[in-house]
């Protein structure tokens, strides 16, 4: 994993979990890799991996079955979707709006560009 230098590594591991859950690589009620496996996968100190697991457990995205391992919560996908939508609205979008006004891009221009991209996908 390539780390962004400004964001704490544990939060970058959290993002890696979100991504896996959103693309349904990790399904609800499915077992996810252990702390040790994740630490190895992303080449970090196991203490850092534990911090990511604890953070996700506090948010009830994952839960721990004693002696078996960690699982995605039954409503894990919805939880992640909520978290990421909120993050988009509160962090990403204001940045975009700021840039738009700086560059003088109107909402209509944005809409056209959006529609064009959607069409190209089809």
């Amino acid at each position: 994993m390539d780390f962004d230098n400004s964001k704490p590594i544990y939060l970058q591991i959290v993002d890696f979990f979100y991504e896996n859950i959103l693309v349904k690589r990790w399904q609800e009620e499915e077992r996810i890799p252990s702390v040790r496996e994740v630490a190895m996968m992303v080449e970090v100190n196991p203490n850092t991996a534990i911090r990511a697991f604890n953070h996700l457990q506090d948010l009830e995205v994952i839960y721990n079955k004693r002696g078996i391992g960690y699982f995605v919560s039954s409503n894990g996908y919805t939880k992640v979707l909520e978290i990421k939508r909120k993050e988009f609205m509160e962090q990403l979008l204001p940045e975009v709006v700021k840039k738009m006004s700086l560059l003088g891009i109107t909402f209509d221009e944005l809409k056209n560009a959006y529609n064009q991209q959607e069409n190209e996908k089809k």
């Binding site: 040790r36 630490a39 190895m40 996968m41 080449e43 970090v44 100190n45 196991p46 991996a49």
Partner: peptide, 13 residues
């Protein structure tokens, strides 16, 4: 180097 990091991540307890 990457292998080294993986190995270290898995050995510390």
């Amino acid at each position: 180097k990457s292998q080294f990091r993986k190995v270290m991540a898995s050995t510390v307890d």
